[in-house]
Nucleic acid binder design. Sequence first.
RNA 1: UGGGGUAUGGUGUAACUGGCAACACGCCGGAUUCUGGUUCCGGAGAGUCUAGGUUCGAGCCCUAGUACCCCAGCCA
Length: 562
Amino acid sequence: METHSAPSSDRSDFIRDIIAEDLAAGRHETVVTRFPPEPNGYLHIGHAKSICLNFGAARDFGGRCHLRFDDTNPVKEEQEYIDSIMTDVRWLGFEWGEHLYYASDYFEQLYEWALHLIREGKAYVDDLSAEEIRAYRGTLTEPGRPSPWRDRAIEENVDLFQRMRKGEFPDGSRVLRAKIDMASGNINMRDPVMYRILHATHHRTGDAWCIYPSYDFAHGQSDAIEGITHSICTLEFQDHRPLYDWFVENLPVPSRPRQYEFARLNLTHTVLSKRVLLRLVKEGHVRGWDDPRMPTLSGIRRRGYPAEGIRDFAAIIGVARADSVVEIEMLEHAVRNVLNRTTLRRMAVLDPVKVVIDNYPEDADEEFEVPNSPEDPDAGTRMVPFSRELWIERDDFMEDPPKKFFRLAPGREVRLRSAYFITCNDVIKDTDGRVTELRCTYDPETRGGSAPDGRKVKATLHWVSAAHAVPAEVRLYDHLFSSAVPGTTGDDLFDDLSPTSEVIVRGARLEPALADMPVGATVQFERLGYFCVDPDSAPGAPVFNRTLTLKDTWARLRARSA
RNA sequence: UGGGGUAUGGUGUAACUGGCAACACGCCGGAUUCUGGUUCCGGAGAGUCUAGGUUCGAGCCCUAGUACCCCAGCCA
């Protein structure tokens, strides 16, 4: 059974409440939503919230969700973005089937409707420049003034608009405006621009057009054409709703969609502004749009976050109309929750220190059968080689351990996972006092990891046989920004970039089973965290990304007492 | 008196539309554990922005405030 989005369905939200009520009241036979990205950038975790809402709500009520590219601005949009957006939406687990649309498919219809409005005396061609239009628009507290071209004769408007389409006028020389109310308190209603002249090649329509509709003139009508019942968008479009309604009510559109707004996602230690993300990439603070620290879906994917975890996250944060900032721990919890369940366990030593088992035969060698997952017995086992010289984690030894330190120390016995109990007898250091080697003895009776006499140890360590170890590069990732809400500390936002958001470890040692995993595969390095294979891996030279650490009580204790 | 929104533990959401403020994250403690993980118990933490009012009873209703967010692209 597929646990598609477990935490959701039992919980509703105000959008689903509205849909349920509309369906119950018979206002619609079936719900139709849409996810309408502009193909001018990469999708990020904020979009994921919207995708889960639109596709999720439609699915919950047996309706459908369209994928529609809002491609009304040829100077910003590219096919590359269309491809990446489709990849990301599918990766998230949603499918639009045959319902793939482009606002640009409606250009001809939109043009006809513009003419309709002109003939009704509800739209006019304005010769004012962009600056003049701005000046005439007034301010937040002062009403605007009518353009001198506002009362042009209908026939003249028709003629001019047709000639705009034919390309008789240069960019910026004229626009088509809706004739609504220059004194409205809502600035969107002060004769908004419907069409602008743009002699630009569109990624889909090529040079067929040199006038392009604005968002406001395209969106609602596109919804109406597709029979969208619930047009869900973010809060900043609230002020546009009266305009959305005005167009739909003044045009002979085939259906009557309604717009509803919800609060966009904000995440601690993260920035979701397109401008800032672009700067991160352009200025080289990250490896690119798919850098594992980026909140883009491609970055998150490369980081190893599973789509199911993102869907669960969207379900637990809910949907509301109040601005909010979600703690990134919520996301991390959702991701760990999935990874704990789905991931295979392996052993890897990131910061190795040598252990020599003095009483283990010099040239001997053996293998242990180690379970792949404590969460899932069906995951089976794999064989892990063992020998006289091993690597363990430097953090797992302390020469002078404090009270609560349970791991290896002089004279102390611990378990090597699934192998033997070992006791540390001697510590060898270099001239700087740095530990280079631990001389230990093992108890042959404890083969497999438990003592026949029933004695216990307080710690189990992960290890890798030195002779069989696979060297690897491991990239440790952490929050990109140090402060919870970047940019509120006053200084430049980029001063807040965490210097340890990426720490590269070159001398990691892996158990052999980790040698040839496919790119993208995720495993748990026992006691350390979840890691996935980065595309930078080469045969014999794997590169792993740390997706997330495991929760670490010891680290917390240490930090508390520090 | 420009317009439009929003206020519930530290954080994100609930509260059958007037009936003991709940869930999750996080935090603290304990049990279990061959991962200081997982799991399992238990706990602290808000009286719902403020002040009035209606009511047997208000987070939900009324009045007056306060704070914060969005809007002056030929971007979406």
